[in-house]
């Protein structure tokens, strides 16, 4: 049993009770006895005028949040999945083609006051504010040498625009 089982349970219950717009949790991936892996479907919700102004349109992406043993003192492992048929990695200058995300919230910017909800929201907003359909400049080189666990990578957070 996780040391912060009750916190994870609470976060999870809140996500189930008040789902964020455009985000659904996929129960088939979650082991109710463990509560350490969560998979979410992320789409961008339409703007207030009902129109979707985004290069991602209504595509559905799958995001996996793996709760580490140190959670919430340490950040969870977060990455996009392309293992399922039909799922793909969103084109974004901070998202590598293996699903790793360059986001300071997932590394040095993490504090225990953040939650899965805040991760989901910031990734969603990262997608919705982006207008460049491209990979990071070092994508090829990174993907060849990248570790499986995105937390093992030390990212250099330099771009605050997107």
């Amino acid at each position: 049993m996780h040391t912060f089982h009750k916190r994870i349970l609470k976060e999870f219950k809140r996500l189930q009770k008040n789902p964020l717009p455009g985000i659904t949790i996929k129960p088939s991936e979650t082991d109710p006895n463990d509560l350490s892996v969560f998979v979410f479907d992320i789409t961008l919700p339409p703007d207030s005028d009902g129109v979707l102004h985004s290069i991602y349109r209504s595509d559905i992406y799958q995001l996996r949040i793996k709760i580490t043993d140190d959670y919430p003192v340490d950040s969870p492992e977060v990455q996009f999945l392309n293992s399922h048929p039909g799922s793909k990695i969103p084109l974004h200058p901070h998202i590598y083609s293996n699903g790793h995300i360059c986001l300071d919230l997932l590394g040095s910017g993490w504090t225990p006051a953040c939650s899965m909800e805040s991760i989901l929201l910031s990734i969603q907003s990262m997608l919705s504010t982006n207008e460049l359909a491209e990979r990071p400049p070092d994508d090829q080189a990174y993907v060849r040498t990248a570790p499986l666990n995105p937390k093992k990578t030390t990212f250099d957070y330099h771009d605050d625009n997107v």
Binding site: L9, Q16, T24, I25, P32
Partner: peptide, 13 residues
């Protein structure tokens, strides 16, 4: 995955 039971996970304390 049936749509109706999409966000239901039996939680175990």
């Amino acid at each position: 995955v049936p749509v109706g039971s999409y966000s239901k996970i039996e939680l175990k304390n």
